[in-house]
Amino acid sequence: MALFGKKKLTTVKVRKREMPDGLWIKCPGCDEMLFKQELEAALNVCTKCGHHFQLPRMARIALYADEGSFVEWDAGLVSVDTLGFTGTSSYVAKIKENQAKTGCDDAITCGRILLAGRPAALGVMDFEFLGASMGAVVGEKVTRLIERGTAEKLPVIVSCASGGARMYEGLFSLMQMAKTSAALARHAEAKLPYITVLTHPTTAGVMASYATLGDVIVAEPGALIGFAGPRVIKETTQQELPEGFQRAEFLLKHGLLDTIVARKDLKPTLATVLDFLQPAPAVA
């Protein structure tokens, strides 16, 4: 389940090397050298080949929210080392390290936005924070987001990314899948729209709960999306994985996604979809 371990962190580091603080970045999609400022102006999408780099948390919020409309909810929730987890380093140290790295408390930021004038409850997961693994804080914030969305009759949008459950919180982390899904059952019962955006990568426990329960599920091009990690599947089955396995395009072909949308088109697409998914009028 948990895919966010050392191996994953290594890939994060590799990706960081692709994006040094220098002026130029080499695109893994087309090997072109890209001018960093230009890349950022293009929402971290390669202007040559369309490769989608990860988008930092605040830029991601700005991608969906009308300027100045974001009001944060449930800030100040912090992870606790409830198991007293001792591995090669302590969980507390990991949390501190990731808080220092990202300047954020945990792997998700939630709030209310206007999306092209339409009010919505938004959650944005950040892979930079411990691989956006889901512990009690992520689970609680997603649950509160959905509950408040239900109470205020708002559409809920979750921009997903995750390496899986947060192993350091043991079975508590698994139970966040239950908790968030329970809240979605009530949101669905209220006939309110729920949309998920799957970004690179969205896997494991998050994928097997709220990421997959969207009324409409949108993915970014090239995003790795799945339950088990490709390495685990390869080791278990001793099979070669098919070309493009677990990429957004593969999932679309197999009928597991509604649509793939390029980053620059996400906001207008969500706005259009929201216009169709109106809450049913209350019966008088």
Binding site: A208, S209, T212, F227, A228, I233, T237, F245, L256
Partner: peptide, 15 residues
């Protein structure tokens, strides 16, 4: 954790 599991959407089945 297999190829067919993913193709038939194990994540959705559990969720």
């Amino acid at each position: 954790p297999g190829i067919e599991s993913e193709e038939r959407h194990i994540a959705e089945a559990i969720a």
